[in-house]
């Protein structure tokens, strides 16, 4: 098996009849999105996107509506052909696959969940979940066993014989997830799966999905327009803007080190309590001031701000931060803690 399940290199997508010409012009002259539209009547969907997704991680792609997220994710299973660049899935160049190879990959290796569920309205929940297996020609008995099993994984026992329009939106999306899991794929593609649901259900499904994905070890490419969701679920996050990726990093990287004003704007309202850790806000401890803090409580450098607050309200003294060996390395005063929560001013 290849070591990188999903690998994109310099992928471009330009929509329009004159996409090739536009691509050449972009390469040679570095035209902007609007120039391409004006000169070739072509829309740049995604521009020069490269990234690797690692085994078992949830790789979130976050961006506003129209930033090219759906276009990007559809390159992985070649629902959209790239204008330029290379898309590698499980070690194979997707654009080189023949029709039957591509279909085999889609039905066995890649599962997909859609924003608007896209269930087949004329089939029961069971037959919807079994659809990918049916396409592969699995016998009916096997299809039924598997759909029963994945439906229980997503907590939908007993709904097998309903029709999609007889169950709630949250349940429908769990059916969508079950359908994607049915063929036990290595890669899950999820295009804003929870965006159409109301906040309470969304939260519930996020937690359920997180638990499930830890249990099943799927490699997931997860699209969202909601940074909270990306931070809650993502192992790493890529921020997209106008078809380009502006930053890739762990949730902590993104929140503490936004690459530009655009990302900074996004993270402004994100709670930092669980994302920022003591070592990021502490003042280094000079050796001479050591006895001054004799009465201060000791806190590990890996504690998050949430924990620092818990400790700080129990004492009038500043907090002393210790490293892995238990040695004092820094100090966090109350003022500093408050500023840290605000995001450092």
């Amino acid at each position: 098996m290849s070591d990188i399940p999903i690998k994109l290199e310099g992928v471009w997508k330009i929509f329009g009849t004159r996409a090739e010409e536009a691509m050449a012009a972009v390469r040679s002259e570095g035209l902007s999105k609007n120039e391409v539209l004006a000169r070739f009547g072509a829309v740049i969907g995604i521009a020069d996107v490269s990234f690797d997704v690692h085994w078992g991680e949830i790789f979130c792609i976050m961006g506003l509506s129209g930033s090219g997220k759906s276009t990007l994710i559809r390159h992985i299973n070649r629902l959209i052909e790239p204008t330029a660049g290379r898309v590698e899935v499980l070690g194979r160049d997707v654009t080189r696959l023949s029709e039957p190879e591509l279909r085999a990959m889609r039905s066995q290796k890649i599962g997909m969940v859609f924003q608007h569920m896209a269930l087949l309205p004329h089939r029961s929940v069971r037959d919807n979940v079994a659809y990918p297996l049916e396409i592969r020609g699995a016998p009916k008995g096997r299809r039924w066993e598997i759909s029963q099993h994945v439906l229980s994984l997503v907590g939908l026992d007993g709904f097998e014989d309903r029709f999609p329009d007889e169950i709630s939106g949250g349940m429908q999306q769990r059916v969508g997830l079950a359908r994607a899991l049915a063929s036990d794929p290595d890669v899950l593609l999820m295009d804003e799966p929870f965006s159409a649901l109301d906040p309470l259900i969304r939260r519930q499904l996020q937690d359920q999905f997180k638990a499930l994905s830890e249990q099943l070890h799927k490699t997931t490419l997860f699209i969202t327009h909601d940074l909270d969701e990306a931070i809650r679920l993502g192992t790493r996050i890529a921020i997209m803007k106008d078809g380009r990726i502006v930053q890739i990093g762990t949730p902590v990287d993104i929140v503490t080190n936004p690459a530009d004003d655009y990302v900074r704007d996004f993270v402004r309202n994100i709670s930092r309590l669980k994302l920022v850790f003591a070592h990021a806000i502490m003042e280094p401890l000079t050796s001479d001031s050591a006895e001054k803090f004799a009465q201060s409580p000791r806190v590990s450098q890996d504690s998050d701000l949430d924990h620092l607050v818990d400790v700080a309200i129990t004492t009038p003294h500043p907090l002393v931060i210790t490293n892995a060996e238990g040695k004092d390395i820094g100090v966090v005063s109350k003022d500093r803690l408050l500023r840290g929560i605000q995001g450092g001013k």
Binding site: N77, L79, L102, R103, A104, M105, R106, S107, Q108, I110, G111, M112, F114, H116, A118, L119, L120, P121, H122, Y131, P132, E134, I135, R136, R179, S183, L189
Partner: peptide
């Protein structure tokens, strides 16, 4: 026929024929 349902069927590897008989004509 809703575009997203057709897309879903394609994403699960349906052939043109499977798409026609299993999704488009029934809908």
């Amino acid at each position: 026929v809703p575009k997203d349902v057709v897309e879903a069927a394609r994403a699960f590897g349906a052939t043109q024929w499977q798409l026609m008989t299993g999704v488009e004509l029934p809908l």
